[in-house]
Simulated scan of single mutants.
Amino acid sequence: METTTDDFTIALIGDGYVGKTCVLNCLQKSTYSKNSAPNVYNEMTLEKVVGNRRILFKIIDTAGQEEYDNIRKRVYEKADIFLLCFCVADKVSYENVTSKWMPDLYSYRNKPIILLGTKVDLRINSSSTSISRERGIRLQRRIGAKFYVECSSKSGEGIPNIIEAASNVLLTSRQKKSCVVQ
């Protein structure tokens, strides 16, 4: 059986310090490092096999700070999908999904989004600043994201679900584009 290869670019975006670099490191090395330094731009390649398809993901980690807007815009143009991140223990990063990041992606609204709630190991159920899974799902629906995934780089919880969701969205959209209607 012949193997088909697909190449996709994923852009990790969101506020600084929500854990994008730790997620990238976990995807790449399957390990957590609390010493991950924030960066301006970082990328890695990840390979996944789904059925008879070989998928090569280029995952680009972008800086969330305003002074790096121009670099992010260049990444947006290359991206096939966005992983829009917020920290479930940080109400401001949650609010910035709609006030900052969705307006930032307006020109790229034809590209799919997966909403990613990070640092679930820090969620405190009784805290008014923690974001519940239900609120994350409501936000996912409100912004039109294809999936909502929660994860913890520290515990590894949900990390495999990120690439699984991205594969699902990207392969489904590629199949729709290659459909011929007569």
Rank of each mutant, 00 (worst) to 15 (best):
E95N: 14
I137L: 09
G16D: 13
E95S: 12
A79K: 02
G14W: 04
A11P: 12
Q65E: 15
V18F: 04
Y17F: 06
A11K: 10
M44R: 06
G51Q: 07
N161H: 08
E150R: 02
S126G: 15
Y32I: 11
L27K: 09
G16I: 01
V18H: 05
I60H: 04
A37C: 01
M102W: 01
N35H: 14
S30A: 11
F8R: 00
L46E: 13
Y106L: 15
A145Y: 04
N110L: 08
Y108R: 02
L116N: 05
L171I: 14
D6N: 15
E77H: 13
Q28E: 14
S152M: 06
V49Y: 02
E164Y: 00
F82H: 10
E157M: 13
I10E: 08
I55G: 12
E134P: 00
S128E: 03
Y32D: 11
V49F: 01
R72T: 06
E157D: 15
I55A: 10
D90N: 14
L105V: 11
N52T: 06
V49R: 07
K91M: 12
L139I: 12
C87S: 13
Y68R: 11
R53N: 15
I114E: 07
P160M: 05
T62A: 10
K29M: 13
L83Q: 05
I163N: 00
R142D: 12
S153R: 09
D121R: 10
D121W: 01
V88N: 00
L105Y: 13
T3L: 13
K20C: 08
V75R: 08
Y94T: 06
A79V: 10
V149F: 03
V18S: 09
K111R: 12
A165N: 02
